[in-house]
Design a protein around this nucleic acid. Structure first.
Length: 366
DNA sequence: AAGTCGTGGTT
DNA sequence: TAACCAAGACT
């Protein structure tokens, strides 16, 4: 029988561990509640999974609650103003996720009668839903035995089987191994159990193997140093880019802001005027690149690390009369935003840093 | 298919 | 502290 295979035994042991040690998270239906008939809401599962892409649980919690309060259903989100969605997402990073989130909600409302597709294939056809997220929603919200493979599961499965192939080439191999391990019963809890195991026991560094519920079949534990899995290619070092940002304040304590292009880095988000960010060390970062004439004074430098480069941003500040601001040099139209409402804008973290450097009290309560 | 795309916490 | 990397998707 299936249950006598080592794989089935591991899945069962893992589910038993999950019943006792699962993390309580706002978007989850705990095992005990599920046993009483509680069912996961696909909207909540989808929203949490998109937010959790490359993002820590801790960072997601507050955003998840905020989005749910603002838009309780996928229909509400579909009907929302995109700019409001970008404002609510500001600070969470990877802003293409927010744009795709909105597009996905619209597609679900328009093409699927307000209900998420219940198959992996149907889900993956939606914006912002890739291999992982489609499998996760299918398993957690629709009880499908799909192979859920994220960074946690890659670590767990690569250690269980001592996979020598480096990532990302090893993904198909790992997905097949996960598929073979996934039980027909409780596939959603199994997926979440694998991720909890990876997050709390089978950690990247110093894994707590003595607390692992499935140590018996772990090849990495027997034959090698578990910490060396998964194998990965060495990373490239991040180049340094330089730039300048200009914080203009008018007599009414308002800051001049503008909107970035819809695509690319920080696409569709709000910024203060500035130079391009380049590797050059000459005039491009100088005060001479200001957006309009004023007595610009240097406020210091903001350092910020993006995914593929590091930025040293020179910040300048000036008192500027609104009449002195011409559109000719800015290239795009902007607006004056009062300090009191600055926090509610779609400002990415790097821009909040720059503004705070020029106006230390800019984001204080009030 | 390798590069692009944020941010913050941990070690 | 500098490196690592977190429930990846898209081009």
């Amino acid at each position: 029988m299936m249950r006598d295979l080592p794989q089935a035994a591991s899945a069962a042991l893992l589910l038993e561990w999950y019943d006792r040690h699962h993390r309580d998270l706002p978007w989850r239906v705990p095992p005990a509640a599920a046993r009483k008939g509680a069912v996961a809401d696909p909207y909540r599962v989808w929203l949490s999974e998109v937010m959790l892409q490359q993002t820590t649980v801790q960072a997601v919690k507050a955003y998840f609650e905020k989005f749910l309060a603002l838009w309780p259903t996928v229909g509400d989100l579909a009907a929302a103003d995109t700019e409001d969605v970008m404002k609510a997402w500001a600070g969470l990073g990877y802003y293409a996720r927010a744009r795709n989130l909105k597009k996905c909600a619209e597609a679900v409302a328009r093409d699927h009668g307000g209900r998420f597709p219940d198959s992996e294939e149907g889900l993956k056809a939606l914006p912002g839903i890739g291999d992982y997220t489609a499998a996760a929603i299918a398993a957690i919200a629709f009880n499908r035995a799909s192979a859920v493979l994220d960074g946690n599961v890659e670590r767990v499965i690569s250690r269980l089987h001592a996979v020598e192939t480096p990532l990302p080439a090893a993904k198909p191999e790992m997905r097949a191994l996960v598929q073979a391990l996934t039980p027909a019963d409780r596939p959603g809890d199994f997926a979440q159990a694998m991720m909890d195991l990876g997050a709390t026991i089978c950690t990247p560094k110093r894994p707590a193997c003595s607390l692992c519920p499935i140590p018996t079949d772990c090849r990495a534990l027997k034959t090698a140093d578990p910490e060396t899995f998964p194998r990965k290619a060495a990373k490239k070092e991040k180049p340094l880019r330089l730039g300048a940002a200009f914080v203009a304040v008018d007599g009414l304590e308002a800051v001049y802001l503008r909107k970035r292009p819809e695509t690319g880095l920080l696409g569709g988000m709000t910024e203060v005027p500035g130079t391009d960010w380049t590797s050059r060390r000459d005039g491009d970062t100088s005060i001479d690149a200001h957006p309009f004439p004023a007595e610009w004074e240097p406020c210091g430098t903001v350092n910020h690390v993006f995914t593929h480069f590091e930025l040293h941003l020179s910040v300048f500040r000036a008192r500027v009369g609104r009449a002195d601001v011409g559109e000719a040099r800015t290239g795009t139209s902007g607006w004056w935003e009062p300090l009191a409402s600055l926090r509610a804008q779609a400002l990415p973290t790097v821009m909040k840093k720059a503004i705070a450097k020029a106006i230390p009290h800019a984001f204080e309560a009030g």
